[in-house]
Each structure stands twice: as C-alpha cells, then as structure tokens.
Design a protein around this nucleic acid. Sequence first.
DNA 1: CTGTCATTGTAAACTAACTGACAATTAGTG
DNA 2: CACTAATTGTCAGTTAGTTTACAATGACAG
Lengths: 225, 225
Amino acid sequence: MYDELKYWYIRDHKLFRTLSMSQIKQLCIITGFKKATKGEIIYFSSSDLPRIFLLKKGHIKIVTVDEEGNETIKDIIQKGDLFGELTLETDNQVNEYAKALSDDVTICSFLMSDFEDLLLRNPSLALSYTKFVGLKLKRIRNSYSNLIFKDARTRLHQFLKDWAESEGIKTENKVVIENYLTQNDIAQIICTSRQTTTHLLNEMEENELLQYNRKEISIPDIRKL
Amino acid sequence: MYDELKYWYIRDHKLFRTLSMSQIKQLCIITGFKKATKGEIIYFSSSDLPRIFLLKKGHIKIVTVDEEGNETIKDIIQKGDLFGELTLETDNQVNEYAKALSDDVTICSFLMSDFEDLLLRNPSLALSYTKFVGLKLKRIRNSYSNLIFKDARTRLHQFLKDWAESEGIKTENKVVIENYLTQNDIAQIICTSRQTTTHLLNEMEENELLQYNRKEISIPDIRKL
DNA sequence: CTGTCATTGTAAACTAACTGACAATTAGTG
DNA sequence: CACTAATTGTCAGTTAGTTTACAATGACAG
C-alpha cells in the first residue's frame, strides 16, 4: 500500500504521465522520500549518488553561501517543480542547499542514472524533459533580464506580478497570494536591500496597490501593478 | 560537391558526431545557409517555420529592443553554438534578432520539426541535446548571479575572466583575446553604462592589468584579475 | 502570560554608478 | 588622402539605493 503511494507521487507529475507502470516502477524502486518543516535545511547529499528531486508539496528555496557566509537565493521551487542537477551532470558544489519555506514540505527523488536510462528508452520523455529544461532556461533568462535593467520598484512590481501569475488565487482582478516569504527573502530575490523592499512595500500599501502581512499578500487590482 | 560541404558543416558540431550519414541527410535536405558581415542584422524569420541555428563561424549577438528602442544584449553566440528556440517551442517575440559582430559570420539552420523527429528516433542524441540545454541553463544562471550581486568593477573582472577562459589564447599566465566587442557592447553585457566601462578599462590599463585596443585585449597575468 | 527572537519600520550619511554633454581619437569609405 | 561616422575619453551634477544603527511590532515557546 505504501508502495502504491510512492508511484502515485511520481506519476502525478505531468512529465511522467506518458510512462507505463513498469517504467515508473523502474524509477521508483529506488525512490527516496523526505519530509521537512519550516526552516529545515535539505542538503543535496553530495556524498551520495547524484539525484533528481521533485517537490510534491510546499515551497523551498535553493540557497548558496559564499566565502563570507552570505546567503543568496538562487531559486524558489514550487510544488510540482523538478530540481537538482537538471544538466544531468554531477557537480560538486557543496555550498548549495535547499531550505524549507513552509511547514509541509514533501520531496521525492530518484537516481540520476536511472533517470538517464529511462530517457534513453523513452525518447518522447526525453523530448518533454528537454522542453521542460528549455522552458526553465527561458523563464530564468527573462526574469534576470527584468531584474538587471530596471530599478528596484519595477523589479518588485514585476516579481509580484510573476508571483501572482504563478500562484495567486484570482477573482476578477483581485489576487491573493499565500505569503511564505519574508521581506528579506523578497529583497534577495529582487536583488535589493531589505530596507528598500520594506520601504517600497509600505509605499505600495499607502497607494492601496496591495495589502501586505506575513500570511498573505492581497492585490486589489493586478492590472495596476 | 556543394551538398557534401553542407553535411560536413553540420557533422562538425560535437552534438552531431554520433549521427549516421543518412540521419544527417534527413536534417540537411532542408538546411539553410546564411552569410553575413559585420553589423548585419539577421532576423529569426518569424513568418517562416521555426528553425534551430548553428553558428559555424564568427561571432554574433542576440539582441532585443524594448518599446523605447533601447537595444539590450541577451546573449553572445560563439562559433559552434546552437541558438534559436532551444525550448523547441515556438515563440512569437518579434523584437529579437541577431547581429553579426565579425565580418565572416556563417550560419546554418534546420527546421525545428525535423530536429524533433531526429531526437525522437535517436535517444542518445536526445540525451546529449538535453545535457547541452541544461549546460546552457547552468552557464546562464551562474553568469547572471555573478552579475547581479557584485559591483561594476567585479563584474567587468568576472566577464573578462570568463571571456579569456572560453576564447582567449593562453601562454603561461598571459592571455590574448580577439576583441570583437566595443566598449559599449561590454557595458551592455555587464549591465553598466558605457562611461563606467571606459573608466574601469582605463583604470585597469593604468594598473597594468591589461592592454586594450579595438582588435585585441591582452592580459599579462590572468591570475591578477 | 511573559520573555525571546525573528521580522518589520524608520532615518541619516554615504557612495557607486548614471546621465548628459562634449572633446579626442580611430576606422572605414569613396 | 580626406571626410565621415563610430568609438573612446573625460568631467560635473544628480540620484537611487546601500549601509549602519536602532526602534517597534509580531509570533511563538515554555
């Protein structure tokens, strides 16, 4: 029964919809599970064999730490996202780890080598996967080019729009986002200081562009951003 | 005889080494060629069927133009690089084009649909291609995260290091780079103003970290950057 | 209910980098 | 070879955003 659950977890991802049960089994025999609560650090066990991860539930951030111990956010992973070495190449960057942002994080993983075997046997899956990585590439490139050229205000607006787009619950033009990020997190994502972010958020609240609190962000009219 | 040349052009790319002659033919029947000289604009003919491009010779930059007509450099493509829609998804962003940076630009291209067919029939090629796209993703992510957090000076240093690494001719610790970029191009790549770039380059020349001219950049000791 | 820690709010001094404006130099073309 | 356009050099004024520092608020554990 527990085994059944495992399969379902993987099968649920749109990338794996085309797979047969036996192919899923091939991956899942070695599937690892992990649960985490808020603030918990999840290492990409570099000692272990390289793995690909799939976030089933919750939110996590991928973080790197530089020589001086400064955390920088590399990516925010949402439910349904694949992460880890998408290049299918092993990389021994030890100073990179994931951190749970919500209390109900569930991750499953499988060996990269098994995944590669599967791709070789299933060209259409390989094609889907390539498109998936390509899409990720495009998303990252776009968000970065937004980040770099515009000022902090525009960057915050753009970030909120993107966030609302991908996760917000929309009714008419009003959008409500579950806020699992601190202002400091947001600051890091849009590459500005915590103070500037606080300032801008308060400014937007004064102009009635949004209501901010630690649980949720509510945007009365998304078109005005 | 001309046909033979065509095949060779594609076969030369490391991605295609594993292909049989007939598979190459399948791609090449519809291969398009293009030559360009410095400054020439090459459109990703959006009216035409979507294509994948391979830069055989020279250097080009991928550029987007925003509403106000400002050019921003999205990518620099070097000899041997594949470019175009790596996502294998059509995208109707018309405000994106390529511009030749050197006088001897040669591009060949093939239809995306043909490429997809080939990937489906050739799983190991699909896997290689996936890794290729993944690598591109990693490269872009790294270069961006370098760009964003550091100041202009560090960014320029990092850029020069990367450039020297990928294209420079190294003897001992001295590196010579063929300079096909203007200071304005460099400024756009490292996201700063043209004046700041000029200032920093001159500063580095004073400190004998490099010698700059329009033809080449010579770095006496790459470790000092 | 209270103490503690994380998060958010606010302000002043400081600085890197941008903008605009113009001059000097170099490359390419007829 | 001279003319033109592109590239590079230089400067002063301005500004967005950082830094430092501390206060206020909220959340959570015992």
